[in-house]
Each structure stands twice: as structure tokens, then as C-alpha cells.
Design a protein around this nucleic acid. Structure first.
Lengths: 143, 143
DNA sequence: GTCATTGCAAATCGTTTGCAGGGAC
DNA sequence: GTCCCTGCAAACGATTTGCAATGAC
């Protein structure tokens, strides 16, 4: 009995199935998105991609991020009004706590908050399509 | 016994007290921010200001918004990654539901959600400085 | 009178796009 | 072979900035 190497969705196959050509730059970017647990912006992805394939261009990174977003493979964030930062969509829905001192991003999920949001929207006569919850916070000083 | 004309904070006096000169453009912008219950962006504020004082410049609008934000007189939002939209800070904290079809913004506040957020942050070892909760929603079709 | 503030134009930042060549299928 | 994708450079929208003139105090 063999244990599958990776439980992650195979985006390459998924994308190909939806008519997207898997090119070298796209494969490189997908690899980068799969490897890191952080939330890089386009420039950072470009830097990491350049290390693997120096011929890649920043426009292709932007184009690919847009494509992947449309295909639902990634999510786009704009923490603190800064440049867009991306993360693979496969990890299920969660919200973000942003460490204001380090810029680190902590993911969390609260069923209670999710439920309350739905309730609030319903009371206002709306149905939530998606939401964005960001906690900007500082590490607690024990003392 | 007289009822005060306006319960709103007098930003002009407040700003003056913190060393800010009250110029014509600034007075105009403050007036606009006080009048409307919506969330205009810089260009819209510029348009409204131009109607009052045609000599005002867009740069001054941007500079003033930055100043007012630093002084805590306004809050800045970036709904859906679009241009910054502003609102006077005096109305107390609330969150936003954005109507995805009309762009309308509905304000709401949930003590329960606020409390849960604090709890989550505390469990993660953080203390919230501020947060951002945006519900992107569509009006419920009854049927 | 002093110095912050302004309008203007040019610069900047993140991002998108037109184009001609190149590569996936 | 077809047509999508690419890199490049130029265009873009939102916002910021350098500068000399102006206006608040």
C-alpha cells in the first residue's frame, strides 16, 4: 500500500482541463505557490520565480496571478492597502491576523464569527458572497 | 435650556489645537466629509469640493485626506481593492457590508463579533489594534 | 514676517496592455 | 500548423512629491 505523495489538488491537471496551457512560467509559479505557506506579493513571486527561471517576466507573473484567481486556484488580499498578496486557495476558508510589527500573517477560522456574519447579512436583507476579516494586532507583552 | 446645534466633534477646532492651519481647501473638505453619509473616494471629494471652490486641486485633497487620517479624523477603506474611500471617524466603530451589485455600503456593528475577535487574538498571543470586516453580499431574492 | 500650505506638473508605484515573436498542443 | 502565451516597453490609474508662489497666524 502506497501513501499518496501529496494531498494537494493538482492544479496543473485542473487548469489543463479548463483549457489552460501549462507553460514553463506557469509551472514555475504554481510550484512557488505550492511550496510556501506565506502570502507573497507579485514582486516576491517574481523574485522567487526568477531564481528558478531567470527569463520569466513580471508581466507574466501578474497575468498568471489574474488567471489563477479567475480559475479559483488562488486568493488575492490587500492587507493594509498595500500591493496584492496571494495564497493558494486549497487550504479552505480562513481569516487573517496581521502582525503590525513584523508583517507576519497568522491564519485562523472561527465558526462562531462565520455564523454571526451570515445572521447579520440576513437581517439586513443580504446574502454573503464572500467576506474579508483582518485583525491588525501586536504581540501581547507579558508583564 | 438649549439643545446644542450639533453633537459632532468640531474638527476645525480640534485640528487647530493640534497645530494644523485651517485653510480654505481644508475647510471645504471638512464640510464635505461632514455632510455626506457615504464613503467617497478622493476623486469624488475633489468633484464635490470643486463645486464649492473651483481652485482646489486634487493633490490638496490627497494631502488633506492623509493629514486627516493621521489626526484620526477620518478612516480609510479600500473596498474590493479599489481606490481609497473615506468616512468621518466620529460615527463610532462599525463594519461594512458592500452591496456587490450597486456598490452601496451598509454599516453595521456586532458586539458579539467584536468580542469573539478579541478572544481569538488573545488566544493567538496578540492584542488587536484595529480590524477590518467587510461582507461582500447580494440582496436576497425573495421567492 | 514666518513658515505651513497650496496648485501645478512631473514623478512614482503597482499593475495592465499592445505587439511581434515563440511555444504548447 | 494553430492560436495561446510570452517578454518587452509603453500605457495606465491612483497617489505622491518638488517647486515656487501664496496665505494663515
Amino acid at each position: 500500500m502506497t501513501i499518496p505523495d501529496s494531498p494537494l489538488p493538482d492544479y496543473e491537471t485542473l487548469l489543463r482541463a479548463s483549457g489552460v496551457r501549462i507553460t514553463r512560467p506557469r509551472r514555475t509559479i504554481l510550484k512557488i505557490l505550492g511550496e510556501h505557506g506565506d502570502h507573497p506579493d507579485a514582486l516576491e513571486i517574481f523574485r522567487r520565480a526568477s531564481a528558478i527561471d531567470p527569463s520569466i517576466s513580471l508581466s507574466t507573473v501578474y497575468r498568471t496571478m489574474r488567471l489563477l484567481e479567475e480559475k479559483g486556484a488562488i486568493h488575492r488580499h490587500a492587507f493594509g492597502g498595500g500591493p496584492s498578496r496571494f495564497e493558494q486557495a486549497d487550504s479552505g476558508h480562513h481569516d487573517h491576523l496581521i502582525d503590525m510589527d513584523t508583517g507576519a500573517v497568522v491564519e485562523f477560522r472561527s465558526e462562531a464569527i462565520e455564523a454571526l456574519q451570515d445572521e447579520i447579512a440576513r437581517e439586513l436583507g443580504y446574502e454573503i458572497v464572500f467576506h474579508r476579516l483582518e485583525l491588525y494586532a501586536r504581540q501581547r507583552r507579558e508583564g
